[in-house]
Nucleic acid binder design. Structure first.
Length: 510
DNA sequence: AAAAAAT
C-alpha cells in the first residue's frame, strides 16, 4: 500500500505547474490563493486544448477538477480577447456555462468567481426558484460569464436582460444529463440563440454511446479528453451491496448509519416522496437527517445542503438532484436506498464519495426486484457486485402511524399538528404567485405567448433539429413544416434510448 | 418508471 495507489488518477507529472500554461498572472494569483500548484490530469489535458479554441468532449469523474479544467482556460481566453478599446454600450455575455441542477450552477459559479477574482471579468449565476430581480440587476450591470440552468436562462432572454448573440464559448456541465429528453428542447433553444461560430465544451463522468453521438452533433471536430476509463467507477470507492426486504429498507439505513457511526452520508432515493419519508423516519429515530429534492422550495434545498456541509445535518436524503457534480468535502459514504433506474446514475451517485483521492464506501440496498438493475450496473462498470447480508440487522415490524402516510390531508387535521409534515405537503410554488388568476383563466395559458416560440414547454417533442442532414435520404414530407417549430407527440411511447437512436437517424432497434 | 428544469 502506498500513495502510488492513486497513480492512475494522478498521471500528471509532478513537474507540470499551472504557470506552464501561459495563464494570466491574475489567474495564477487566484490559484495560489486556493493553494493550487499542480493541475490534475483532466486540467493538464483540457487547459491547452481549450486555449487553442478547440471543442472538447471531456469524460472525467467528478472530483477530478473538471470545473477548473474549463473555467481557467475560458477566463484566459476572455482576458486575451477582452479589450475592444471602446467598450460597447451593451455588455454581451461572452461565455455561458449550463448545468442540470441549480445547486451545481451555484457551485460552479462560486468557482468561476474565485478563479476570476483578480481579473476584470464579471460573472453571475442564474437559476429558477429564486427572485428574478437580483439576477436581472446583475445581468443589466453587465457580465462576461453566465452560469445558468436552462429554464431561467431562457426566461432572462425573454425579458431581454440577457443577450447571447455574442457568446463565443458554451460549456455543458454534466452533459449527458443536459442532453436527455427533458432538457433537450430548452438546450436547443439556447443553442439556436448562440452564434454558429463558437467554441463548445461538454463534460460528464459518463457518456453512453447514444449520448456520445448526440453530443457530437453539437460539437465541431471535438477533441476527446478522457481521464481514466470511461464509465469506470472510482477505484478508491468500495462498493457494497446488501440484500434487504423492501419494508425493512428504512430501518436498514438507520442501522447502517448507527453501526458505522456515519457523520456525513448521502442517501439516494429514486423518488421525492421516498426521500422525504426516509428523512422523516431517520429523524424519528433521533438521527440528524434532512431531505433535498425538487419539490422542496429553493431555500429549503439550499438550507439542507448548507446544513449538511456544515455538519449540522449528518444524513442528506436526496433524489438524483444531488447525484451529479456536488462537491462535498470528505464524504466517506453514500447509500443507495434504491438502485437507480439508469446505470449511469449509479456511477454519478457513488462519485459523491471517494473524491479527490480519498477513500469511500458506496452501499446499495437491493431487493429481489432489483436483479435486473443490478445486472445493468455490473455490465456498465464491468465489475461483479455480490449482494451480502447486512450483519446484525434484525428488522422489527413496523406499526401504527408509519404504516400509511397520508400525503394530501386537509389542513387542520390532527396529524398535521402532531408532526409538522416537514414541508412535505406539495410543491410550494405559492410564495410569489401574484398573477395566479390570470394564468388560471381558461385563455390565460394558451393565449399567453411565449418568447421561446410556438412550442409548448415540456411536451412530447419531435426534435427534427437533432437529425443530421442526410442528402441521400429523402426528407419526410412534413419536414419543412416542422422546421422552425417543435411538433408534438410523435414519439411519446418509446423508451429514451430508442428515441435518441431515432433522432440520430439510425434504424430503430428491435 | 423517475427526476430535473420557468412561472
Amino acid at each position: 500500500m502506498s500513495d502510488n495507489q492513486s497513480a492512475t488518477a494522478q498521471q500528471t507529472p509532478a513537474s507540470v505547474r499551472f504557470e506552464d500554461f501561459g495563464l494570466s498572472p491574475d489567474i495564477l494569483r487566484a490559484l495560489t490563493d486556493q493553494g493550487y500548484v499542480h493541475p490534475t490530469p483532466i486540467q493538464a489535458q483540457a487547459i491547452p486544448i481549450v486555449l487553442q479554441g478547440r471543442d472538447v468532449m471531456g469524460a472525467a469523474q467528478t472530483g477530478t477538477g473538471k470545473t477548473a479544467g474549463f473555467a481557467l482556460p475560458i477566463i484566459q481566453l476572455l482576458l486575451a480577447h477582452a479589450s475592444n478599446s471602446a467598450s460597447p454600450a451593451r455588455h454581451p455575455v461572452r461565455a455561458l456555462i449550463l448545468t442540470p441542477t441549480r445547486e451545481l450552477a451555484d457551485q460552479v459559479a462560486d468557482n468561476v468567481k474565485a478563479y476570476s477574482h483578480y481579473t476584470s471579468l464579471r460573472s453571475t449565476v442564474v437559476f429558477g426558484g429564486m427572485d428574478m430581480a437580483p439576477q436581472t440587476a446583475a445581468l443589466r450591470a453587465g457580465v462576461e460569464i453566465v452560469i445558468a440552468t436552462p429554464g431561467r436562462l431562457l426566461d432572462h432572454v425573454q425579458q431581454k436582460t440577457l443577450n447571447l448573440s455574442q457568446t463565443q464559448i458554451l460549456v455543458m456541465d454534466e452533459a449527458d444529463r443536459m442532453l436527455d429528453m427533458g432538457f433537450l428542447p430548452d438546450l436547443q433553444r439556447i443553442i439556436n440563440l448562440l452564434p454558429k461560430q463558437r467554441q463548445s465544451l461538454m463534460f460528464s463522468a459518463t457518456f453512453s454511446p447514444e449520448i456520445k453521438k448526440l453530443a457530437n452533433s453539437f460539437l465541431d471536430k471535438p477533441v476527446t479528453i478522457e481521464v481514466a476509463r470511461s464509465n469506470a467507477t472510482a477505484e478508491n470507492v468500495t462498493q457494497i451491496i446488501y440484500k434487504v426486504a423492501e419494508e425493512a429498507k428504512r430501518q436498514a439505513v438507520a442501522h447502517i448509519v448507527r453501526e458505522r457511526g456515519l457523520k456525513q452520508v448521502i442517501v439516494f432515493s429514486n423518488t421525492k416522496i421516498g426521500a422525504s419519508r426516509v428523512a422523516r423516519e431517520l429523524e424519528k429515530q433521533g438521527l440528524k437527517a434532512s431531505a433535498i429534492h425538487g419539490d422542496k422550495s429553493q431555500s429549503e434545498r439550499m438550507a439542507a445542503l448548507e446544513a449538511f456541509k456544515q455538519g449540522e445535518i449528518e444524513i442528506l436524503v436526496a433524489t438524483d438532484v444531488a447525484a451529479r457534480g456536488l462537491d462535498i468535502a470528505e464524504l466517506p459514504c453514500v447509500i443507495n436506498y434504491d438502485l437507480p433506474y439508469n446505470a449511469e446514475d449509479y456511477v454519478h451517485r457513488i462519485g459523491r464519495t471517494g473524491r479527490a483521492g480519498a477513500l469511500g464506501d458506496a452501499i446499495s440496498l437491493v431487493t429481489d426486484k432489483d436483479a435486473r438493475l443490478l445486472a445493468d450496473i455490473e455490465k456498465l462498470i464491468k465489475k461483479q457486485l455480490a449482494p451480502s447480508e447486512l450483519a446484525g440487522f434484525v428488522p422489527h415490524a413496523e406499526h401504527g402511524s408509519e404504516r400509511r402516510p397520508r400525503r394530501e390531508e386537509a389542513p387542520g387535521s390532527e396529524r398535521e399538528r402532531g408532526e409538522r409534515g416537514s414541508s412535505e405537503r406539495r410543491p410550494r410554488r405559492d410564495e410569489e404567485r401574484t398573477s395566479f388568476s390570470s394564468s388560471a383563466s381558461p385563455q390565460g395559458r394558451t393565449a399567453g405567448r411565449s418568447a421561446y416560440g410556438p412550442a409548448p414547454r415540456r411536451e412530447k417533442i419531435d426534435p427534427w433539429f437533432l437529425k443530421p442532414y442526410e442528402p441521400s435520404q429523402p426528407a419526410p414530407a412534413n419536414a419543412a413544416e416542422n422546421r422552425g417549430q417543435l411538433a408534438n407527440g410523435t414519439s411519446s411511447g418509446k423508451p429514451q434510448k430508442a428515441k435518441v437512436a431515432a433522432l440520430l437517424g439510425g434504424p430503430p432497434k428491435r
